[in-house]
């Protein structure tokens, strides 16, 4: 089951790599949030406890409801264009993502020989981190940067479930809170920038140079 969910997660990453629409990014984020929630619930199906529900519940509220809504609200309020403005061709980007997937899965299989990890969740988490960074590097739009950070964070989450013994749940909660705050601040920053500059490209931020 865990592997199935992880593979679905990877597919969502591929979709991110080809879609040119901002809305699709938000939808993918929502989808990934649901996947992660189910993934976290899995171990607790057999033995139910109240505490075990807290993390999936917060995850669901923040990742599936609050953040996507917030991003949608920013898009509507600031009237952001609906395309993502890439800096390289979508096809090249897809190639890059596939290439990194291959390397990461190979690396994970080599790693699994020496340490005990579950290859597929581990590698897909890793891949999500890579894709998140790629999104940040190769997209101009600030709101897409926010999405990139969130994908990156999802990757860390998945990564965490794969090496649960080494990464305690408290840290995951901490990371969750961190990213939430980052998104929040970015939203505020976007609002501010919109009143100063026209447009939401990072290229414009060059003007902020001291």
């Amino acid at each position: 089951m865990q592997n199935v969910l992880s593979i679905l997660f990877c597919l969502s990453l591929f979709y991110l790599a080809v879609t040119p629409r901002v809305k699709a990014y938000v939808a993918v984020l929502r989808f990934q949030g649901i996947l992660l929630t189910i993934l976290l619930m899995l171990p607790f199906i057999e033995q139910f406890s109240i505490f075990a529900v807290i993390l999936p519940a917060t995850l669901f509220i923040i990742k599936v409801i609050v953040i996507p809504r917030y991003i949608n609200k920013i898009i509507l309020e600031l009237d952001i264009k609906r395309t993502i403005e890439p800096t390289i061709q979508q096809f090249n980007f897809l190639l890059l993502v596939i290439f990194s997937f291959i390397i990461i899965f190979l690396a994970a299989s080599i790693l699994s020989q020496s340490t005990e990890i579950e290859i597929i969740p581990f590698a897909s988490g890793f891949a999500a981190v890579a894709v998140g960074i790629f999104i940040i590097i190769f997209r101009k739009k600030l709101i897409i940067h926010v999405a990139g950070f969130l994908v990156l964070e999802n990757g860390i989450f998945l990564f965490g479930t794969a090496v649960a013994s080494e990464l305690p749940i408290m840290i995951e909660i901490g990371v969750l809170l961190d990213v939430f705050v980052v998104v929040f601040l970015m939203g505020i920053a976007l609002n501010r920038i919109s009143s100063t500059f026209e447009g939401f490209d990072v290229t414009i931020l060059r003007r902020l140079k001291d």
């Binding site: 690396a107 890579a130 960074i133 940040i136 590097i137 990072v202 290229t203 902020l208």
Partner: peptide
């Protein structure tokens, strides 16, 4: 550079180099 994307790319490159060395 003044663009944040370059810095993130640098970070990625450095991380890749470190992981390669670790491997």
């Amino acid at each position: 550079y003044t663009d944040i994307r370059y810095y993130i790319a640098f970070i990625l490159i450095i991380i890749t180099i470190y992981s390669l060395i670790a491997f």
